[in-house]
Simulated scan of single mutants.
Amino acid sequence: MNWITTLSAATMILTSGTAISGAAAAPIDIEIAAESHDMIWNAVAVDHGRVFVAGPRWTGSKGPSLALIDGHGIARPYPSPQWNGWTPGVANGTTFVNVNAIHLDGKGGLWAVDTGSPEFGGDPLPGAAKLVRLDLATDAVDRVIPLGPTAALAGSYIDDIRFNGDHAYLTDAGRPGLIVLDLRDGSTRRVLEGHGSVTARPDRDIFLDGQPLTGPDGKPLHVHSDPLEVSPDGKWLHYGPLEGPWSRIETRFLDDASLSPDELAEKVEPWANLPPVGGTVMDSNGDLYFTDLAANALRKRAADGTVTTLLVSPELHWVDAPFIDTDHVLWLPVPQIDRAAMFNGGTSQIRWPIRLFRLPLGARP
């Protein structure tokens, strides 16, 4: 059992940022919601006060792949120990092999994105790459959608998911492309395969602590299509490589299976020249919150393109996958991904504890 200390009453005052447009930002108090000395979470989702956390196996995280933090600060395997009990030889399709992302569908479901490979950069194991939907009313798995082998290819790292009506969209950070999921029948299509909008550019390195992040091979790490957000009205999908820049495409074109690859590619538009980000979340008014990796910063891009810096602090070193709950609170998991052993010659540089912050955003726009 993985133990987490819940510190919901603890508050830190992090260095306030300044607006790039020139206006000063007010000081911001940010709360430590939870911390762990075992589990490395890169994802969070909150439903009616219940806090779910998850993290990939290759970071060295101990404990469950997907957990619910209970009222006593214990991270309990969710939905069961069996689903969190994968080991080599155990059924790949009915256990979590490597959870990289979790997200709510707005219809009572929590979805887990399983890349299917316990190793970073490894090929998905047979039957392991999948989407798992959990019914939050019953705390039981009610749907499993396999993602291979036509969706999760050799070298794929299925990264994250967003929902829009009868469809969902996923990014592939390993084999550049997007995946369109028809939620009605579970069918998938790969689109924009190898397109420039989903492909990491070699001239945009990921910098942290003033140094470019390198992979296990010692070369600069480049991550293909990774962050994505659907606009509040559902019209646009915004997406890009982790390093940026971002593009956008109308969801009606993504949903149209009759379009040829060339016809679909013509619908892509440039959107925002964002820096390398740890994660993003879009608010109901179109504000995009993103974490600037090089600066240990939390920034907000308004719908008009104005970027404001909200927080800058070493405590925000590689914030991943922020989440906004129904109380308009921003949750910020800090997994320190670049400090994992595989990026540091086999020796972890993680600075414990791993923390989960929460930042009230005020009245919902």
Rank of each mutant, 00 (worst) to 15 (best):
R301V: 03
R301S: 04
F323A: 06
I337K: 13
L311D: 05
R339K: 15
W331N: 07
T309E: 15
P322L: 08
L311T: 01
F323R: 11
N296K: 11
P335W: 10
Q336V: 03
R301A: 12
I337L: 15
V319Q: 09
A294K: 12
A302S: 15
F290T: 00
G305W: 08
D327S: 14
D304R: 04
V312E: 14
S313H: 08
H317T: 12
L310N: 01
I337G: 00
N344W: 04
A341V: 01
N296Q: 10
L316Y: 05
T326A: 15
L330S: 05
F290M: 05
D292G: 02
D327R: 14
T291A: 10
A341K: 10
R299P: 01
N296E: 07
L332K: 03
N296S: 15
T308Q: 09
K300Q: 14
V319G: 03
V329D: 13
R301F: 03
A294E: 14
S313I: 07
L311R: 05
R301P: 01
A340E: 05
N344M: 07
S313R: 06
D304P: 04
M342D: 09
L310K: 10
V307T: 14
L330P: 06
A294C: 10
H328M: 00
L298G: 10
P333Q: 09
P314M: 08
T326K: 13
D338G: 09
V319A: 12
P322D: 08
L310C: 03
T306N: 08
H317W: 05
A302M: 11
T306D: 09
D338N: 13
D320I: 01
A340D: 12
E315I: 00
V312R: 14
L298Q: 11
P333A: 07
L330V: 04
R299A: 13
L332H: 09
G305A: 06
F290C: 01
F343E: 12
T309F: 04
V307D: 02
G305F: 03
L332W: 07
L316C: 09
V312T: 15
P314Y: 08
L311F: 04
L311G: 05
T291H: 09
A321I: 11
I324R: 08
H317L: 12
V307I: 15
A321R: 15
T309L: 11
L311W: 03
F343T: 11
T326F: 00
D292W: 11
T308S: 14
W318P: 00
V329P: 00
A340R: 04
Q336F: 07
A341R: 08
V334T: 14
P314R: 02
A294W: 02
I324W: 10
